[in-house]
């Protein structure tokens, strides 16, 4: 019964989890497109620097990156609040992952389509937005769906900053009630949220069917 009375506490945790999730997506997906382009740039210096950034982000744990931003950057005078730290760390990390997904998506579009467009005298922006981008989106949706649901679960890493996300709320009440029920509730909440998100992504994927 106390579990029912504790629902508002879990929902507070869920609010932080979902809030962080949404902010990170809204920022990192639009950022990832230019990064994907720069990464495929012919300018070796710029492309190399971008590759280095992506490799660092993918080659080190997100938790470590977050620690570095929160505990390391103050040493050189850059101080972020706890929640801001979480947003910054997740956005730069997820932008790298999305950029790689988009890059491979763009690469998978047959070069012949760019040439067909050129032969028809269609300008590059028109060709990109009307032809290339919609195909890229469809190609990358499964991979993006994966990242988007992983992000929901990854947000629990903010425990290192002392932020009260859904999982931490579960931990708090599992300990104070000496019961496993809070973990069950937390698991069910995660499951519901991720199911809803997956269904949404499926709908989007279907809308790109041709």
């Amino acid at each position: 019964m106390e579990i029912i009375r504790l629902m508002p506490r879990f929902l507070e945790g869920l609010q932080l989890t979902i809030g962080l999730w949404a902010i990170v997506l809204v920022l990192s997906i639009p950022l990832a497109f230019p990064v994907a382009f720069i990464r495929s740039s012919k300018n070796k210096l710029v492309a190399g620097a971008t590759k280095f950034y992506i490799d660092i982000m993918r080659g080190t744990p997100l938790l470590l990156q977050m620690c570095f931003i929160f505990f390391g950057l103050p040493e050189i005078g850059i101080v972020f609040e706890r929640f801001t730290t979480a947003v910054v760390a997740f956005v730069i990390n997820y932008t790298a992952y999305f950029a790689e997904i988009f890059r491979s998506g763009l690469k998978s579009i047959d070069k012949g389509q760019w040439e067909a467009g050129q032969m028809l005298g269609i300008s590059k922006p028109v060709l990109f937005f009307k032809v290339i981008l919609p195909q890229t989106i469809r190609t990358v949706i499964p991979a993006v769906t994966n990242e988007v649901t992983t992000l929901v679960k990854d947000t629990s890493l903010v425990y290192i900053l002392g932020l009260g996300d859904l999982l931490r709320q579960g931990k708090i009440y599992a300990n104070s009630l000496s019961s496993l029920a809070p973990f069950v509730v937390v698991g069910v909440l995660y499951f519901i949220v991720i199911t809803i998100i997956s269904k949404g992504c499926e709908k989007i994927e279907k809308s790109f069917n041709y």
Partner: peptide, 14 residues
Amino acid sequence: DDTFAPMGFRDEAG
């Protein structure tokens, strides 16, 4: 550490 009952933790009201 707010997960450490009974030294420091959260009540039902948070």
